[in-house]
Design a protein around this nucleic acid. Structure first.
Length: 385
DNA sequence: CCATCCCGCCACGAG
DNA sequence: CTCGTGGCGGGATGG
């Protein structure tokens, strides 16, 4: 690769400090999302995604699992998922809400006193989704006939599988969607979600997963990471749905905004130097500077004014506005200190902006060019080995 | 220090 | 057996 020196946003750091942020799940997810949000994609192949995004398979599973929990994706077959899109979110949330309320009737979690194996398991029927295709070959869901309270199914320590991530995600979401609270601290979530805690070991593991989920949900803009008011405890704030141009009769295309991405989204592979460098001068130098410029960051208003989300079933949120304002050119922020960063933008607003928080900014990248190229000539780039 | 969380080993289940 | 999946936790990174 000719290192044509285009303007590299990145600078300094001669020794290419490996940065975790570059490979974070959240970022990866953002790429994933923007990649498949372009018109017309319907099926998502795991391998395809993996190579396209330049990551290992394993990571794709993480993303896909949580996205499925929110309805954006649906498992179709081995190695394949169906892209439902963002417009599937409202519905999924609605279902999650009802479901959550239902199971919530019997027991108030809150004080869970001593119940060792309580582990609030709740299986869930999960989305059924009115699928357009009635016919199906293999069936998957084992629906227990309306086991309202779920009874003691699960003989055995039941599901060796389906134990986490997907479910954890849904439970996490239910938690927000079922209560009016919109800010929950991390450990609250952990305790609530897995009712056991006690043993720090188990909880620690769960918390890790929670971070994973949180990252993905953050990419979706469903939540945001913050910390409780005064305390320094990390917490999550529910942003909920943003103004979706949704209306009764939806139509397939026309949906929300689409972010296009030009060029490669591929993350370069920089491994996290495990034992680190081979003594013999690593030649990795600095060449490849990735030009993965991140777009992103459109804030949605979490209409704070409304305490209660709504009790009405219909989701008519949108106290306002479409978030589709795009700004070309992108370099709008004249940060005092050059904050261009290399990549990574989005969800970080460490400073306390008391009220200026709800602003709407969206920087969008160009990409139109690439887009054209693609449309016109079909991008030849494709090395799916 | 502690919060965050990437990496990838390895256990499952299906073919 | 191989292969697709995805728990799970060590331990590195960032603040």
């Amino acid at each position: 690769m000719p290192l044509s020196s285009s303007e590299a946003p990145e600078s300094s750091c001669r020794h290419h400090t490996y940065s975790r942020k570059q490979k974070s799940l959240g970022l990866l997810c953002t790429n994933f999302l923007s990649f498949y949000d372009r018109g017309g994609v319907e099926v998502v192949g795991l391998d395809e995604a993996a190579s396209k995004l330049g990551v290992e398979r394993r990571r794709i599973y993480d993303i896909v699992n949580v996205l499925e929990g929110v309805g954006v994706l649906a498992r179709k077959a081995k190695n394949k998922y169906t892209w439902k899109g963002f417009e599937a979110i409202p519905k999924a949330l609605q279902e999650l809400k009802e479901e959550g309320l239902r199971e919530n009737l019997s027991s108030f979690d809150k004080h869970r006193s001593s119940n060792y194996e309580k582990v609030s398991y709740d299986d869930n029927d999960d989305e059924d989704e009115c699928d357009s295709n009635p016919n199906t070959g293999s069936q998957n869901d084992n629906s227990i006939p309306s086991g309202i309270v779920k009874s003691t199914a699960a003989s055995r320590f039941d599901n060796r599988k389906e134990k986490s991530l997907g479910l954890l995600t849904q439970n996490f979401v239910k938690l927000f969607v079922c209560s009016k609270a919109d800010l929950i601290s991390l450990d609250e979530v952990a305790k609530l979600l897995l009712g056991d805690a006690h043993n720090s070991s188990i909880m620690r593991t769960k918390v890790r997963r929670l971070y994973d989920i949180a990252n993905v949900l953050s990419s979706l803009k469903l939540i945001e990471k913050t910390h409780t008011a005064e305390a320094r405890k990390p917490a999550f704030r529910w942003l909920g749905l943003r103004g979706k141009p949704e209306s009764g009769s939806d139509d397939a295309l026309a949906e929300s905004r689409k972010r296009t991405f030009g060029a490669d989204v591929t993350n370069i592979c920089f491994k996290r130097n495990k034992v680190d460098s081979s003594p013999d001068g690593d030649r990795n130098d600095n060449l490849k500077l990735q030009n993965q410029i991140k777009v992103e960051n459109e804030v949605t208003i979490a209409d704070r004014s409304a305490l209660c989300q709504d009790f009405s079933n219909s989701y008519q949120f949108g106290p306002f506005a479409p978030a589709t304002v795009a700004k070309v050119g992108g370099s709008d922020n004249k940060a005092t200190q050059t904050h261009d960063w290399d990549s990574f933008a989005s969800t970080y607003r460490p400073q306390y902006h008391n009220q200026a928080l709800r602003e709407l900014f969206a920087h969008y990248m160009e990409a139109w060019k690439s887009w054209y190229t693609e449309v016109a000539g079909k991008k030849p780039i494709q090395q799916v080995s």
